[in-house]
Amino acid sequence: MKYNTVIIGGGLTGLVSGIQLQEQGQRVCIISFGQTLLHFSSGSFSGEESNTDVQALLKNAGIATVAGGYRLTPLGELRPAALTLEGYYHSETAELKEKSFAIVRLPKYLGLPIEFLQDTLTAQGREVSIITPDEVVGCPAEVILVPACKAGYDLKKTYGKRVSLIAALPPSIPGQHIHAKLQQYFQKIGGTYINGDKVVRSTLQTDEKGVRVQSVETQNLGDELIVADHYILASGSFQSEGLQSNYDHVWEPVFGVDTNAPEDRTAWTALDFFEDQPYQHIGVLTDEAGHALVEGRPVSNLYPAGHILGALRTDIQNLNDALRIAKNL
């Protein structure tokens, strides 16, 4: 199978670069192993500053967002967000502008710490009540919060703007929506999305011009060679198995891209759990032009993007990179 670009990893970074490339007229194939970090999405894209290109691309795929401002965490704190899905509680400033809130308690649902949320909002001087779904009608509160679970989305459908969603425990419904929308859109514009499959072999070719990726092979497609001019490596960090580790080293399993992991294993973690954890900064190495380094040499058609460069990167950093790489191919 021949493509212009093959993307390894079907999460946010992979899908957005795939859409951009497909829209630029390329033939693109995304290979995705298992679901992605989007399943932990809060309904917002993290980062300081949004980007109108990203917002427009999401909009085309059917994902409407509000730029900038603050999202409300399930613990009742306002945090800056680059983009927030429409329908979620969102504040333009770092302070809650409304005076009164109601939180809907859904029967048998434990994914939102309701009393805790009530306490923190009360501590910010707000009037907060807890109501049942039936009490939404006629509720005097300025804001009515419902957890972003399946039943919460149903309420949102019924009451529209009157209720606002707030992130709840994963698996994340907004994340699933974002993923499904992007995936559908990518396929609709002609992209090939291989789901639940793993790249098990890659062939690198070395000649006088340097090193380049020749082909990759997957578990399900067997001896099928997947060949492309360019490869984007967006397979994520440790949790998505874009990076792997054992007791003595860290490696990138598909191409063997070099990493910045310290040799001394004890340096991977900080003893205090709440401290900044060094392993979250572990990522693969690239040259200045963004080519992956394998055994110190740049691979001329392989571009790592997203969390494989470091787990603490924000969504917007990843998205901007995805677009930048795609536009240069």
């Binding site: 199978m1 194939c29 499904a180 559908q184 396929q187 609709k188 002609g190 090939t192 291989i194 789901n195 639940g196 499959d197 997957t218 578990q219 399900n220 497609l221």
Partner: peptide, 27 residues
């Protein structure tokens, strides 16, 4: 078919049929 991961082959064929309008349903 999803577990086999071979829908890519079917779609590859279908996309080559002239005059075929193809919608891919969400899985």
């Amino acid at each position: 078919m999803a577990r086999l991961g071979w829908n890519v082959y079917t779609l590859n064929i279908l996309r080559q049929i002239p005059g075929l309008e193809l919608d891919i349903l969400e899985q």
